[in-house]
């Protein structure tokens, strides 16, 4: 029985052979690939985390900016609204004024016209009355007077 501590040549050869092949292949294509992948992924993850943090910060800034803009727009809108209302009111007042003016003018014109017409009518009536008076014989003074009064009454009633 060979001693436990005597290495066998054949086994030594096969061990050396397979260990060197395994070592050669794994040292070239095995472990460095795995460890490189791990360190690359580590880098990738830390970079992604950093990017995510930066993006978060950027988003916050954008949000702030948006809020500010929103406030501004709201303020602007309120101001614009007020302005529009004011302008509209002003315009309405002006318009009303204008219409009132026109109405007044119209009224004045109509009154003038009516006055003219009345005058004309009065003139015509006076002429008629005068004609009728002239046509009648001034025989009865009392009757004449009554007649004139009647005429006047009639004349008063006429414009109605």
């Amino acid at each position: 029985m060979p001693s436990l501590l005597t290495p066998d040549f054949g086994l030594l050869f096969w061990m050396l052979f397979s260990f060197l092949i395994v070592f050669g292949l794994l040292a070239k294509f095995g472990f460095p690939v795995i460890t490189r992948m791990v360190s690359e992924r580590q880098e990738h993850i830390s970079r992604s985390l950093k990017e995510a943090e930066e993006t978060g910060k950027k988003t916050l800034t954008i949000l702030e900016e948006t809020r500010r803009q929103q406030d501004e727009i709201l303020k602007q809108a309120v101001a614009d609204g007020e302005k529009i209302i004011r302008t509209a009111q002003q315009k309405a007042t002006e318009e009303t004024e204008k219409q009132l003016e026109a109405a007044r003018q119209q009224i004045a014109f109509l009154r003038e016209k009516a006055l003219h017409e009345i005058n004309a009518q009065v003139a015509i009536l006076s002429m008629d009355m005068a004609e009728k008076i002239l046509h009648r014989q001034l025989d009865d003074k009392a009757k004449e007077e009554a007649f004139i009064l009647q005429m006047l009454d009639e004349a008063e009633q006429l414009p109605k």
């Binding site: 086994l11 395994v22 292949l25 095995g30 472990f31």
Partner: peptide, 24 residues
């Protein structure tokens, strides 16, 4: 001179194949 593929030599070769398969 004895380079026989003994039980242990075969086991070493099999294990080498297993190891290469796993890690490659």
């Amino acid at each position: 001179w004895d380079l026989s593929i003994t039980k242990n030599a075969l086991a070493i070769l099999i294990n080498a194949v297993i190891m290469l398969t796993i890690f490659l």
